[in-house]
Each structure stands twice: as structure tokens, then as C-alpha cells.
Simulated scan of single mutants.
Amino acid sequence: MRTGYYLIVMLIVGMTLGACTTTTIDEFRQGDTGIDSSESIVILGRRQGAAYSTHADFVECVGNRMGRGNDAITVVPEQVFVDALFPWFEPRTAPMRSEDLQQLMAQPLVTDKMSEFGIRYMVWLDGQTETSNRMGSISCAVGPGGGGCFGFGSWEDDSNYEARVWDVSSHTSVGTISADASGQSYVPAVFVPIPLIARVEANACNNLADQLKQFVKGD
């Protein structure tokens, strides 16, 4: 019985060490950047109707991360910005290229709202997290003497996101940053399931936000 207990502990420890993520950040700069304390940015998720959308939670995560710390940047919340500039940033009408920004800024209401918010950069986030390679199974049963779960499950998560940075003052694209995070999660079950989750999307958010902050500051 003691041997079985040690095997269970070793399995859980091994899986905990394995439930980690690998994150790769790539940056492509097309122009000079810089921002002062009176300016802000807005981060928008790419959406194409109901068929495809960048999760609002991920967009919010990146914005919150950039808005914290000693070197924080003022980030206008996505929904506040979209509502204020309705309908120009709805999925069907939002600009798809930086060249469209100049035409958009010709609208007096858009120009006024951009100035009101102090927007210097618009960041378009595009991407998603996909789960694959699900393996194993867990079964649970209840009997007169009690109940429990037994089995083992695992899966892989892969987060791929790309951020395109547009300079509102020059109506140009100044760069692109991409984040690719992957990891393996496990759920061993010996009486009680113990999920050991790789924080793939959280790592992609944190690393992308930190790189974006350096990028717009011109570091």
C-alpha cells in the first residue's frame, strides 16, 4: 500500500513539472515609435461576425497587463472605444488595412473621439487557442463503500496571436508582434481528479503585453 502511495505522489510531481508552457515572441518593426503620458492606446480584437473572433477575454488580459506597473500605458477599454465610435469599428465596418485608417480619420466624429481619448496607437489582436491530441479517459463510480475516480487524461494547448500596431498620427502600420505559446496539460485521477493545467493562454497574454509595451514606448 505504501509503495502504491509513493507511486501516486511521484506521478503527480512528475506531471506538475511537465505542465509548463513554451512561449516564442517575434517582432517586426516598420517604423519608429514613442508615447508620452498624455497619449493612450486601444487594443481591438479582430472579429468576422459569428464565424470567427478573437476572444474578448484575451484582449482584456493584454490591456490590463499593459496598464499595470511603473511603466504603465493608458489603455482605453475595447468596448468603451467601440461603443463611442459606433458603427465604424463593428466587425463588418472596421478597417482591415492601415491604408483604410486615413479614410476613416476623415470622419469628423472619428477624429474628435480619437482626440478625446488621446489615442496614439491602435493595436489589432488576431488569433486563438486550440486544443489537440486529447488522450486517456477518467471513470468515476459510487458504491456502498464510497466512490472515487480512476484514470488519466492529457491534451495539448497552442495559443497563436498576432498584434498589428497602427500609428494614428501617421495613418501607418509601424510593426507586428506575434506570440506562440504551447503546453501539455494532465489530469491524473486516483480517487480524486487532480487537474495540472498548463497556463498557455495566460503566458501568451503576459509575454505579448510586455513586448507590446516596450514596442510602443520605442525601447
Rank of each mutant, 00 (worst) to 15 (best):
E60F: 06
G127M: 11
L104T: 00
V76E: 03
T16G: 02
E27L: 07
G45C: 11
F86E: 06
W88K: 12
L85A: 05
M15D: 10
S98F: 08
S169E: 14
E39T: 10
Y52G: 04
P95F: 07
A72M: 07
F28E: 14
D158N: 12
T93D: 11
Y52P: 03
A19L: 13
S53C: 05
F150E: 12
I177S: 02
G63Q: 10
D36C: 04
R97P: 03
A204T: 14
F152D: 09
P144C: 03
G118Y: 08
H55F: 07
R134W: 04
E130G: 09
S169R: 13
M96H: 07
C149Y: 10
A163C: 04
A141E: 12
C20T: 15
H171L: 05
F81M: 11
N64G: 06
V123W: 06
T33D: 07
I197P: 07
G147V: 09
Q102I: 09
G63W: 11
T16I: 00
E90N: 14
A181R: 11
I73R: 00
D210P: 03
F152S: 12
S37D: 10
K213L: 04
A50L: 15
D32H: 08
L85N: 10
A72S: 13
A163P: 02
Y121P: 06
P108E: 01
V187L: 14
D180R: 15
Y5V: 13
T21H: 11
S169C: 05
N206H: 00
K217S: 01
E27S: 11
E116T: 03
L85K: 04
A202H: 06
L44M: 09
Q211C: 02
I119H: 01
A198Y: 01
P195R: 00
L212F: 09
S38W: 02
D57G: 04
Q214D: 15
W155T: 03
M114S: 07
T93F: 08
D32E: 14
I25Y: 01
V165S: 08
G218Q: 07
V76P: 03
L208C: 00
P144M: 09
F152N: 12
R92C: 02
P195N: 00
L7W: 07
I73A: 00
T131A: 07
S154L: 13
A106D: 14
D157K: 05
P87N: 05
G63F: 11
R29N: 11
R29S: 15
G63L: 09
T74Q: 14
Q102H: 10
E156F: 12
M66Q: 01
A50V: 08
N160V: 11
A181W: 05
Q214T: 12
S169L: 11
A84M: 02
W88T: 10
R134T: 08
R46L: 11
V187Y: 06
E130I: 13
